[in-house]
Amino acid sequence: MKTILTVNNISKSYGDKQVIKDISIRLGKGELVSILGVSGVGKTTLFNILSGLTPPDSGNVMLYSRNDEAGAIEDGTVESAADESGTEKKGTETDTEETDKTEETDKTEAVVPGTDITGKNGYLSYMLQKDLLLPHKTVIENAALPLLLERVPKKTALETAGKEFKHFGLDGTQNQYPSELSGGMRQRVALLRTYLCNKEVALLDEPFSALDTITRASMQQWYLDMMKDIKLSTLFITHDMDEAILLSDRIYIMKGSPATIVEEIIVDEKKPRTSDFTLTEEFLEYKKRIRELL
């Protein structure tokens, strides 16, 4: 799998307090990778850094965009922070990583420089915890906002957004105002808006956390169905173990103060998945393991 984004040794302090320390993450093309940790551990701080809103104290963020496709790394696996900080690690997957490590780093430096997007905004699409829809714009105008901000003519922008409404299960809501929609629908609009940012990587910060349990479950199912067609590379923040296991290809566990990545877990279950997966033995195994780590 081609790497699209690497986060290398990011640290950040506010005043005397170090919030995150030496965080390294790799995201493959079309992959959904979760960052799982308790509330307040620093996940949002990390996303603010990745999106370029907050500069890190050290470390960098590299984007291997479609423009330098030719050089994109084949099956690059970046060193996880678990390796770096030398915390105890589970054998199997980290072993293979170790061997790739040197080779990958070489390639990164020699063959593909990638784009250093540390502290630069506008490269990744970012969906914050709240839906943040503009109350005075109609649903379709809200969805088309990223296009309008790029000064795409209004008519074209609305047409482009309109094409996706059916796919996002929003048909018929185009000319309503956000206040007329339910929480789940509003979240879909926010997701569509994120999608229409048309960046190669999406950062989703607990997109379903504000929803009630039943709506959340149906949104997760809907999200899995939708992702069959849309190959979006996604970094996903959550504090919900079930959600992380159900949706992700890999999970980074973030823990401590300052927060570090303590473990990387590969969820080796074929996609597309359904919510039935949550009822299986394997699922419980993953859950047990994560619970021990947290």
Binding site: L53, N121, L124, S125, L128, Q129, L132, L134, L148, L149
Partner: peptide
Amino acid sequence: DEDMIKLMNSMKATRWQIFKYVKLPAAL
């Protein structure tokens, strides 16, 4: 909402765009 400004910044909105799309309508 500060987060709204953050979202706009993540989409590389200019100051004028933030004013036009977010601030002015919110202040009406």
